[in-house]
Design a protein around this nucleic acid. Structure first.
Lengths: 122, 122
DNA sequence: TTATCATATGATTAAAAGCGAATATGTTCA
DNA sequence: TGAACATATTCGCTTTTAATCATATGATAA
């Protein structure tokens, strides 16, 4: 993959936030929506950009599409790994995103429950 | 320095080309203009962006302003060093930029000579 | 001091990127 | 099959970024 498209994919706060979450495990689109508090088309678009830059990939489970960080890219481009592992964490938003993520994971609930408001992440 | 402004400063081909040249030594604005074949205001603006992101700094010598890579940033943000040292080189444009740079340096001429067309870098 | 030169900065235009609302697609489940 | 749902895509709009031309600034040198 070309360098510039990768850097461009990384040059957006929402996309860094997505990578920050995916670092701790795969997530489907609707989980990302709720965790980042962004709307559906926005989530989908940003995920598309990350996919095009080959930073993430996806797989389908039932009606859900799960996204995950593409391991290849981390090997091919160590600077991406460096950013995801050591830099993103310093963004303030990412801290609170992780708080939400932790709360969600500890709840043991699924993304169906999320949408139904069975858990408040704030 | 904040992460996002740094990544944004890196997400432009011209600016990567500038960093690629500066890696081999400080250069004044008019040298960068000629080596990258871009106009003066363009060069100045991109250098300004790099300066704002604290990726480069400058000093004045006579009527010239020399730019150099800011060493601090490379220590603080290893991913920047990684990009400059190992990634930029793979950009095609940067190869030919370096050919020009080498030709210029080997000529022993100054930037005054450059403007007067005393050397052809193509 | 005045002319010259290197660089920076406005102002404008053009191109790219991002966003929300609505719609399309494709899957699941009753 | 048809209704419901998850995700992707399109449209129109706004914001951001880049490029160019012209002008301003600030230093140098005659």
């Amino acid at each position: 993959m070309e360098l510039l498209p990768i850097i461009k994919a990384l040059s957006d706060e929402t996309r860094l936030r997505i990578l920050n979450l995916l670092k701790f495990g795969d997530l489907c689109v609707c989980e990302i929506e709720v965790l980042l508090d962004i709307n559906q088309s926005n989530a989908s678009r940003h995920l598309n950009k990350l996919t095009n830059a080959k930073l993430v990939e996806y797989y389908k489970v039932n009606k859900y599409v799960y996204y995950k960080i593409k391991e290849d890219i981390l090997k091919e481009h160590p600077f991406v790994k460096e950013i995801i592992d050591s830099e993103i964490i310093n963004l303030k938003v990412c801290e609170s995103d992780l708080t939400k993520l932790k709360k969600y994971k500890q709840s043991g609930l699924s993304c169906d429950d999320l949408k139904e408001g069975k858990i408040c992440l704030n």
